[in-house]
Nucleic acid binder design. Structure first.
Lengths: 350, 350
DNA sequence: CTGAAAGCGCTAACAA
DNA sequence: TTGTTAGCGCTTTCAG
């Protein structure tokens, strides 16, 4: 009654052939006769033969596993990207092993080691926020395991990376608001020493400049963005006179906070004040009005990262030139930023 | 210049000891002298020795990997549970390999096989919605690999499982609303052939009965719940006279839709109509007012599932009694359901 | 088209 | 306390 997994050797014995023949038959090798293949696959199915990945990997030196290391699996963004990564990898016949660094440098270094132990053939990383010393990212390379960054990259890295063009996103959002007729656009930014926040802000400034508008420092608000800082910022901004006619937030939760405060002051969105933001969490489509923002392209990000990695894996001889792929962000225009003139009939109704 | 990973054999040669000594030293085995341990770990560090997980697993018959199979990694719930699973597993020294079934029976069966090939020592599964034929869940057992379900379980399964008490959730939410003084509580349910929806609804009915209230069929609305069906349901319900003074939605997006419609009709939440819902997505804390709901206990779910699985792994001899763990849901009371009397001062102000 | 034999890197009896 | 030896299950030359 005690059941043991069937091995290739078991199959070989039962069929009176050599293990190598079974192995080849199962791999659909060219020079195995159809008859033998039939017999082998038949019995394999009957016995529920499951190949032992560990043994195959040990022997062939190929694990067929890609490692993925993300800061965390909470919120909207990373789960979505990981989802895209696993699908794309599966399509190409690869497994994926996922680790979380929990935004911690120590755990990140440990995870890299863990993935290398698991004999992954390539690694995708979104760096932890806390990471200062980045030398643990070099060990894969020394073992000829390619590493590709996505979303979060160490400064001046020599690795390949897939990124979203934050500057372009800030520029496009601002240009959109200007084109809709908004003129006093407030900006809520996160800490400006964080690269992507700085880039978004620069895009905002440049767009204003491009349209001949001044950057009014009084309309820029820097904070660790979330719902309550978004609320506080908006409350502050409403004290200005003339008050801003649009608010651009570098994070969507802050935008929601701003919108709440506007509604509490009986200001209409978008007729009195437009709201727009970065990032693209589900709730932005649930807000009323729905929120204009930048689509972070999670799917494209994951897909591109996998392709880049597989490319590096398949060309181990090449000089491993680092390739930085910058994805263009997509502006998603929704109700919260549609100019007055478009909504004029509605205004008269209400 | 061509670098090869250092192996135990390399270390052994260099140190003039046997491979087994190195192996034991690295494993911190009792009867290896401190001196030898020092020498070994020292050189291992210097050479950046990385143990080969594949080889160790093959030899020891232990992979140290747990398999996780979820319907998808999008939305709020599953990423959160997976996060909890990986943390808990890591704490106990286990790796985790994650697969997505994409709610598809075929992919689910394939993923189970994949995990078995990877020599996982145990499997956690949340079943795909589309799965009718559940026999692929039996193959792990035949190979003495324990399988534990969480969240989504096949009907009449003989496996262990960790579940949320949907009935209790429905009951508690309803009781809370009744205790707050609401009397005409409408109910938005998903398809009642889905177990958890049926249980939630039963809890609602029983709570009403317990407080001596009738179940008014006209206040029950069945649909595939989302934002727009939530809106439609609410619009319908407002035609009733007298109109409901509370709405309980079996899914949070539907509750958001209902709240939007209420606001559009200038009905105040919670003074005129209370709103509460199941599930606990981030945006329920961003809504205005914040939404009362049931906490789905993602962290506890993941943690419990891992513990149950590890328990089964560590006691392979035991008769493997299936254990069903039912987690008590937690009622999270927020602004959307606080009774009129508590908010009376605010009402006078506005 | 198939078989024999070696060995991937590690661990665990058993022996010393 | 350490060494010797064998082998986990598979793949892959090389030889028929």
């Amino acid at each position: 009654m005690s059941y043991r997994r069937a091995s290739i050797i078991d199959l070989a014995k039962a069929l009176n052939v050599a293990p190598s023949t079974v192995s080849r038959a199962l791999a659909d090798h060219k020079d195995i006769s159809e008859v033998t293949k039939q017999r082998v696959t038949q019995l394999a199915k009957e016995w529920e033969y499951q190949p032992n990945h560990l043994a195959a990997g040990l022997r062939s030196g190929r694990s067929g596993i890609l490692g993925v290391l993300v800061p965390h699996l909470t919120g909207y963004f990373y789960p979505e990207v990981v989802h895209s990564i696993t699908s794309e990898a599966a399509k190409a016949g690869w497994h994926v092993m996922i680790c979380e660094s929990n935004e911690d440098e120590k755990q990140e270094a440990k995870s890299i080691a863990l993935l290398l132990n698991a004999q992954v053939e390539g690694i995708l990383v979104a760096m932890a926020q806390a990471t200062r010393n980045t030398q643990h990212f070099d060990s894969p390379h020394r073992q000829h395991i390619p590493l590709v960054f996505f979303d979060r990259v160490p400064p001046k890295t020599t690795h390949s990376a897939v990124l979203l063009d934050d500057y372009r996103g800030g520029y496009n959002l601002t240009a959109h608001l200007l084109e809709q007729g908004y003129r006093r656009i407030a900006y809520l930014t996160g800490p400006l020493h964080v690269n992507s926040y700085a880039n978004r802000y620069q895009g905002y400034c440049d767009a204003l400049a491009h349209y001949g508008m001044p950057v009014d420092e009084a309309l820029t608000y820097q904070a660790d963005l979330n719902l309550s800082t978004g609320r506080a910022a908006m409350a502050d901004l409403l004290l200005h006179s003339p008050r801003p006619d649009a608010v651009l937030a570098a994070k969507d939760t802050a935008a929601v906070g701003a919108m709440q405060v506007l509604q509490e002051h009986s200001l209409r969105v978008p007729q009195d004040v437009a709201v727009a933001s970065f990032s693209h969490d589900t709730f932005t489509t649930l807000a009323a009005p729905t929120l204009t923002n930048i689509d972070h392209q999670c799917a494209a990000l994951g897909r591109t990262a996998v392709r880049l990695l597989l490319e590096q894996i398949s060309t181990p001889t090449s000089p491993q030139v680092a390739r930085q792929v910058i994805l263009s962000p997509m502006l998603v225009v929704r109700a919260s930023s549609l100019a007055q003139k478009h909504l004029a009939p509605l205004v008269e109704v209400s």
